[in-house]
């Protein structure tokens, strides 16, 4: 699992080795497509280089305002039946997987268990609440809130939006340190999540 310590270590090793670190890039405000998932990006978000999120799925994106250890807005589009929300091949990781017939409570549990793995099993106790219906364009989905108590770290709070379309899961979540950072970007992050909708995928 790529936890926060691994992230810092990766950056330090790259620095020591004299590598040119991949850079963040500013996300332009306005409509923004991640494959067939479209959101309305507000100002101030920065796209994290894929090298900083090695356990993310290939088509996932992580945005941040103050740095991913403090706040992150993650988009995971088009997860097919049987796939995990993370890209980790080790069987020992025991990642939970998406199933196309999942109901809202099961998507909530999928996320809860996945975030436990993100922080490292045994290093976090994650809970969810306020599961509620939410429309994403014409597609019915859900939103819910999340809390993570983490070893040697501030607590985290989060908000998750998700819907299933064409038997695939589209999931967006905002996770930020509490106190301060969660509240600082909460409304901006929720606005992006709530704006999510399915569009026709761009031709290859």
């Amino acid at each position: 699992m790529m936890n926060n310590r691994n992230l810092i270590l990766l950056a330090m090793l790259a620095g020591i080795a004299g590598c040119t670190l991949p850079a963040y890039s500013l996300v332009s405000a306005g409509p923004y497509a991640i494959e067939d998932l479209q959101v309305q990006a507000g100002g101030g978000w920065n796209l994290s280089p894929a090298a900083f999120t090695p356990s993310a799925r290939a088509n996932a994106q992580t945005w941040t305002q103050d740095g991913p250890l403090l706040d992150r807005l993650v988009f995971i589009p088009g997860v097919p039946d049987g796939d995990a929300l993370l890209n980790v091949n080790e069987q020992s990781a025991a990642l939970p997987v998406f199933r196309k017939d999942m109901l809202p409570n099961e998507i909530e549990e999928l996320m809860e268990s996945t975030i436990v793995k993100v922080f490292g099993e045994g290093n976090a106790a994650v809970s969810t609440s306020n599961l509620r219906p939410q429309m994403f364009g014409d597609t019915r989905g859900v939103m819910f809130d999340m809390e993570a108590k983490v070893t040697d770290s501030p607590e985290y709070r989060g908000t998750v939006g998700a819907f299933v379309a064409n038997e695939k899961l589209y999931l967006m979540y905002y996770l930020a340190a509490e106190p301060y950072y969660y509240g600082k970007h909460e409304s901006a992050a929720k606005a992006v999540i709530e704006s999510a909708r399915l569009v026709a995928a761009a031709p290859e």
Partner: peptide, 9 residues
């Protein structure tokens, strides 16, 4: 229950 809205839906 915090998920009352979902159940009522």
């Amino acid at each position: 229950a915090s998920d009352r809205a979902m159940i009522e839906f």
